[in-house]
Design a protein around this nucleic acid. Structure first.
Lengths: 109, 109
DNA sequence: AACACCAGTAATATATTTATTACAGGTGAT
DNA sequence: ATCACCTGTAATAAATATATTACTGGTGTT
């Protein structure tokens, strides 16, 4: 399975999603398996609202996916799961992706 | 030559350096060869002070290096050059690097 | 001298990201 | 009813990143 080329904007969103220490730690936690939001907040030692903000940025970048589950005792639980990825980053790859950059910061947000 | 493992802080600095559309375009330009600051500013269509800010962030992340030259007609010129790199990014790699993250944002700046 | 290049930086303004606080509403158990 | 869990978000504050403006000073040429 070959790496299909990313657009500049996709590549940028990926880097933005990875450019934060808390998000790297979230990835580290999720690398051990999917987890629900409240538990993830405890493990990452941050508030749920803040965690949501980080997770949404990661979701937009396409490195995590989410899924609702109803636990045995009837509680709604939202699980986040890491999408397996393997990116190869080189100057040449960035040069190609840069051609499709729309540049402007934050639009569709 | 094998990829020596990066510390969490180094990896974070790398992602931060890549998480900006202008810096990706600067990389794209430098991928064609070293360039001096004023010319680079013209090609990237940005002011020199702004370009300096971006280049310094990239330099700290270790993806560019700089070198002063005296042109034939005696002018001092500062060239920036891309350091060849090839990074493989996977969840496992991030999990390992996250162990050495110092987390706090901006200290030694 | 005035011009066209070159490098460099300090001070400031603007925009964005990150973080917190304060909510609302659901389930099941005591 | 109260408690201990769960999800979710709006409003705001605080911290950083990005961008601009206004400078200083160098070279060689006209």
């Amino acid at each position: 399975m070959k790496n299909k080329p990313m657009t500049g904007d996709e590549l940028l969103a990926l880097f933005e999603a990875l450019a934060n220490p808390h998000r790297l730690r979230i990835i580290a936690i999720l690398a051990d398996g999917k987890q629900y939001v409240s538990q993830l907040a405890r493990e990452a030692e941050m508030s749920r609202p803040l965690l949501y903000m980080h997770l949404q940025k990661m979701e937009k970048a396409g490195i995590v996916k989410t899924e609702m589950k109803i636990s045995e005792d009837g509680k709604a639980m939202k699980f986040y799961e890491l999408l397996p990825f393997e990116f190869r980053i080189t100057p040449e790859l960035i040069r190609e992706a840069a051609k499709t950059l729309t540049i402007k910061k934050k639009e569709g947000k």
